[in-house]
Design a protein around this nucleic acid. Structure first.
Lengths: 259, 259
DNA sequence: CGTGTCCTTGAGGTCCCTCAAAGGCGGTGG
DNA sequence: CCACCGCCTTTGAGGGACCTCAAGGACACG
């Protein structure tokens, strides 16, 4: 096995699927224990990756589904021109390669940005579980819809917001996501992304990202240090970005499923 | 009721849910009849909309789920600046407001671009059906994943492709989607979008869309006439766009669900 | 103290934007 | 049948946002 990857033998049953997934779901759904138990049944192993390790290459067969416990993962595509577009950023509590239940091959690279700890789940088992456990299906449907919301909003950003707005928007988004996971203190965000990463998220050049961070800094909105972004004025940053956290649906609840 | 909308009383049971959904699913899934029957149970009415009618406004409560039978629907967001970003284009066989099973309010406007005929489905009933009929859940999971693929690829386009590539890409995508629905003959696409619509899909200005179409025309790749796009050289257009239809997953099949 | 990674700064260029106006083209009505 | 109108598209001119190329600075690490 690749040196940058390690896999520990399964501890019998996964009795400690992290709470991160359920923090995301908390405003929407409460059957944590039932979902946790279901997920446990598909558990294969805990896996860990070093920074830079490819968890799932694009164009290759899916290996499993992963639930991130610790660390950041980037889902991206490289173009022939050499450019890269990062489609989304996966945080603890997010699933990776969820489409492994449906498709054979991945369209995107999934690369660990930090050291990553994840729960590796057997896709066929997971699919079967979803078909038979409505509460699990519901939780996953929410997670999917949440992610689709992120993608839609990113499209709006890339299409119709300028560099400052886009940059401000992604910072607001990360702040809310990290906050709901409890991975934040105060207004300082530990973000393990380089400005080159931001460039490939925001569809900009690395150099213009640098200038944009500087501009936001001089407006008194943020300070940027490698790995640490501090937001000094949340309302103004959100106003500049045209940010409204509603699209992530962390709180909006609807009890129409009869599980 | 709004003049631009009409609703016909339910014909007892929906015995003719269109084949469009199943054409999309054909490469992946074959239980058409079972799925059709399930959907029928949530059927409320056939609804039709005139061009320009709002099927579901953003920020308002979802009214129902819709399955498009005829016509084009644009899902979009208006920004404070007055700009509009079209997030996706819904065609026959596509679901609208699928998140009505999960969330209360819509994040986007859903506007009929042409005259639209759709099947209106009761969201709570639909949710319950999905929880109890695995084949329906599977079909919908595929449809969701398909749409997420479209969104991801749009992000790549907006972030890292230039005007020509982006424009070519969306034309290639529409050609494949219309083709699989059987809504195409030869290389001529009946596309009821104005150049202003293309601009809001592609994150460009109307004027630059016009110039870009002209450039593609002069390269001998397409001809553009209001409502009708003809692709003269599919391979070259796809090459220019960096287009690979794989991301739509029309053919990739995986039988790991035990339904 | 060298080396690698990341960030910053400058200069020049280009892609795409905005503003302004004119040219099809189908529909409608006299 | 022509005039008119509204919608859409095209063209031109000028400007600005962002890009590329190039090089230097800051910082961590061995």
């Amino acid at each position: 096995m690749d040196q940058s990857t390690s896999e520990t033998p399964p501890p019998g049953k996964l009795n400690k699927v992290s709470s991160y997934l359920f923090r995301k779901l908390q405003g929407f759904y409460e059957l944590s224990d039932a979902v946790r138990d279901s997920i446990s049944e598909a558990f294969i192993a805990e896996v860990s990756y070093e920074p830079g390790a490819t968890i799932q290459p694009s164009g290759e067969a899916y290996r499993a589904i992963y639930l991130i416990e610790r660390g950041w993962v980037l889902r991206s595509r490289y173009l022939e021109s050499g450019g890269r577009q990062i489609v989304n950023v996966a945080l603890p509590g997010d699933f990776l390669c969820f489409n492994a239940t449906l498709f054979t091959d991945s369209d995107f690279d999934h690369v660990a940005k930090t050291q990553v700890l994840a729960f590796k789940l057997d896709a066929p088992t997971f699919a079967t579980l979803m078909a038979h456990h409505a509460h699990l299906a519901l939780a996953l449907a929410w997670a999917n819809a949440h992610e689709e919301g992120l993608l839609s909003e990113r499209i709006v950003s890339l299409g119709r917001r300028n560099a400052r707005e886009r940059t401000a928007h992604v910072l607001c988004e990360l702040a809310v996501r990290l906050n709901i996971l409890g991975l934040i203190n105060g207004n300082s965000l530990q973000i393990p992304l380089t400005q080159a990463d931001f460039a490939d998220i925001l569809g900009m050049s690395l150099i213009h990202v640098s200038r944009t961070f500087r501009a936001l800094t001089q407006l008194g909105l943020i300070t940027y240090r490698s790995g640490l972004v501090t937001i000094h004025d949340v309302p103004r940053l959100e106003k500049l970005a045209g940010f409204d956290a509603g699209y992530m649906h962390f709180t909006q609840r609807k009890d129409i499923f009869r599980v």
